[in-house]
């Protein structure tokens, strides 16, 4: 007889993990590790640090699963954890960069691009390159950066973003509009340089 594979929702999986089923945790890790990596990578622009943040996020999921209540979607909860950890890491990296700029001189600042070994699935054919877009995202203020990544790269809904950032949907909408315009302006300036 063929085995019937049941596809559990994220919320069902976290409920099973809360009851002690560690296989449910492994399944959640499988579903979210790359999604979280792409979110955190666009935020930090450093592959190594982003992977560490994703590890911390999933570790937090393991140790604090009991804190999850089914009033929010699981994805919203896990992205909230990742966003908070990424913000802390970005602050730490900024402090470190300031120190290294002081010790190295302004012209030696490194711009990290992930190695080809990590196999990007697609190449872009647009007039905007990935490097330019990433550079422009890096320049955005934190509040714009988070919404633009969650919306344009993670493709989350306004409602989900509103829950993750704990702001109203109206604020999400206006912030997204302003972020897009700011990003467009920055890219134009980068092109002209």
């Amino acid at each position: 007889m063929d085995k019937v594979k049941i596809k559990y929702t994220d919320e069902e999986l976290i409920a099973r993990f809360q009851q002690g089923d560690e296989r449910a945790y492994v399944e959640l890790v499988k579903r979210y590790k790359d999604r979280l990596l792409n979110f955190v990578f666009r935020y930090l622009n450093s592959y190594e640090q982003s992977e560490d943040v994703v590890q911390d996020t999933l570790m937090k999921l393991y140790t604090s699963a009991h804190m999850y209540r089914e009033i929010a979607k699981f994805s919203t909860w896990i992205f909230t954890i990742a966003a908070n950890l990424a913000k802390s890491e970005l602050r730490r990296l900024k402090r470190r960069r300031v120190i290294s700029i002081h010790s190295m001189g302004f012209n030696d600042k490194e711009y990290e691009i992930p190695s080809e070994a990590y196999n990007p699935e697609k190449e872009t054919t647009s007039s905007y390159g990935e490097k330019q877009i990433q550079q422009a995202i890096d320049t955005l203020p934190d509040q714009f950066k988070t919404v633009i990544i969650l919306r344009e790269i993670q493709q989350l809904s306004y409602e989900e973003i509103s829950q993750i950032l704990d702001i109203s949907i109206g604020t999400v909408k206006s912030r997204i509009n302003r972020s897009r315009l700011r990003l467009q302006k920055l890219l134009k300036e980068l092109k002209e340089q």
Partner: peptide, 8 residues
């Protein structure tokens, strides 16, 4: 939307 997706 079509930026490269990275894997762990």
């Amino acid at each position: 939307k079509s930026l490269p997706r990275y894997k762990t």
